[in-house]
Simulated assay, not measured.
Amino acid sequence: MESRAAILWEQNAEWSVEDITLDDPKAGEVMVELAASGMCHSDEHLVTGDMVLDPEIAKMIGLEQFPVIGGHEGAGTVVEVGPGVTDLAVGDHVALGFIPACGRCPSCARGWQHLCDLGAFLLAGRQITDLTARHHAKDGTDLGTMCCLGTFSPVTVVSEASCIKLTDDIPLDKAALVGCGVTTGWGAAVNAANVQPGETVVVVGIGGVGANALQGAAYAGARHVIAVDPVEFKREQAPIFGATHTASSFEEAQALVGELTWGANADKVIITTGQVTGDMIAPAMSLLAKGGRCVVVSVADIKANDVQLNLFELTLQRKELVGCIFGNANPRRDIPRLLRLYMEGQLKLDELVTREYDLDGVNQGYQDMRDGKNIRGVIKY
C-alpha cells in the first residue's frame, strides 16, 4: 500500500514529507488509517539528539534509529488485521498508546503497564513482533517508526499491543492526544505525585504535558495549582486548565509559594519542561515542603548524568525525588477512562489544541512549538 509520511533522515535535519510504501500487517499486527496525530515534544528529541543512542553503541546492538517516521500520538480506524489478531477487527476505532502493553510480563502483571517489557523496543522503531520494517521509502530503504507507531503518516502498521479499542462515539482527533501527552501529564499529578485535596502543587513547564498536569492536580482537589513558565502566552492559557496562580521563573515561584503557604512550601512539584537539565532539580526541590515529592516527567539528554541536589535537605526534610513515564498509567485502563471524562465535560481536550496542520506543515508546527506559540499542535488527516 502507498502512503505519505514525515521522515527524519538524520539528526538535526528537518522532517521530509515523502511517498512511502507499507507492507500488509503480519501476525499480531494491524493497519490503521489515522484521523490525526499529536505533535509531541518527544519527536523533537529525535531531531536534537536527546533520544539518540551513541552511534557505536547502536551499531554494536544492531540498532538503526534513522531514517525514522515520526509521531507517537494517534487514533484511527483499523482497516486490515494480520493473522492471529483476535481482539480487533476491521472497522474498530483505536487509540495508539506509545507504551505497548502485552498484559503478560511481570510489570503488566503488577499493574505497571507503563513499564511493559515491550517498551525495550521503542527506540528500535521496528515491529515488535519480529524487529523488521513494514514501512519503506520509495527507494526501498527500511524506515523506522517513532515508538513503533509512526503516526506522521495517515496510514501505519502497528502491533495490536499498541492499540486500545474505543467506543465509536469518541472523536478520533481528540483520542489521538491521549496516547501520550494527556495521559502523561494527568497521571504525573494523579498517579506519580498522588496529589491530595487541599495540597499546593507547582507545575514547571506548561506545554502539552504540563497543561494536563494542571488538569490532573485540579481534578484531584489541589487548593493551589501554580503554573511556572517563562512564556507569557502559556501563563495566560494556564488558568484554562486549572492553574490558580502563575509564575515566570523558579525565583518568582519561590516567593509566591512561600506567600501562599505561609512559608510551608509546596506539597508537590512536577517538572514537565520540554527538556529537563540537572540544574533544574535543586530549585525544584527547594520549592518543596518537608516530606514533599518532586516528580520528573521531562526527557533529558540520553547522555546526561549530572544533577544538582542538596543531599542534606533531601535527608533531613525527607523530601522525595521520583521519575515518571506515561504518567505511571495503565493505557488499557486509563486511556478509555480519560476519554470518558472528556465526553462528560470533565477533561479539556479541545482547548489543548492551539493550531492544526496538514502533514506538509509538520516543520512549521515544530517551529511554532519552539517559539512557544502552541500548547499542542495537531496534524489532521
Rank of each mutant, 00 (worst) to 15 (best):
Cys102Lys: 00
Glu232Met: 06
Trp112Phe: 02
Ala304Met: 15
Gln346Leu: 07
Ala289Cys: 10
Thr273Leu: 15
Glu14Gln: 09
Arg4Asn: 04
Val231Phe: 08
Val195Phe: 05
Glu14Ile: 02
Lys165Met: 12
Val228Arg: 00
Gln65Ile: 10
Ala193Leu: 02
Leu115Tyr: 04
Leu46Met: 14
Tyr342Ile: 07
Arg223Cys: 09
Glu64Phe: 08
Ala188Asn: 05
Gln364Val: 08
Gln113Asp: 01
Gly38Glu: 09
Cys105Arg: 01
Leu115Cys: 08
Val378Thr: 15
Val158Cys: 12
Thr277Glu: 07
Asn265Leu: 11
Val209Gly: 13
Ala213Gln: 03
Asp139Pro: 13
Glu356Gln: 14
Gly119Ser: 13
Thr21Val: 11
Ala109Met: 14
Gly28Ala: 07
Tyr342Val: 05
Trp262Ala: 11
Ala89Cys: 03
Pro83Glu: 05
Phe66Glu: 00
Glu252His: 11
Asp360Met: 04
Ile325His: 12
Tyr381Thr: 04
Trp262His: 11
Thr21Asn: 03
Val201Met: 10
Asn194Ala: 14
Val299Lys: 06
Lys373Ser: 10
Arg376Pro: 06
Thr151Val: 06
Arg293Glu: 05
Asp54Val: 04
Ala35Phe: 01
Gly71Gln: 13
Val297Thr: 08
Ile302Val: 14
Leu359His: 09
Leu131His: 14
Ala227Met: 05
Ala220Ser: 05
Val353Glu: 12
Leu63Glu: 03
Leu339Ala: 08
Trp186Thr: 01
Ile128Arg: 08
Gly38Pro: 05
Gly76Val: 01
Ala35Pro: 10
Gly74Asp: 11
Leu172Ala: 15
Ala213Ile: 02
Glu2Ser: 07
Gln317Arg: 13
Pro55His: 02
Thr48Ala: 11
Cys116Gln: 05
Glu2Asn: 10
Gly125His: 14
Cys116Val: 13
Gly187Val: 04
Val209Trp: 13
Tyr381Arg: 05
Thr315Pro: 10
Leu88Met: 11
Leu341Pro: 12
Pro230Arg: 03
His224Arg: 00
Glu2Ala: 04
Gly327Arg: 02
His136Met: 04
Thr244Asn: 07
Tyr357Met: 04
Leu122Asn: 13
Ala189Met: 05
Leu288Ile: 11
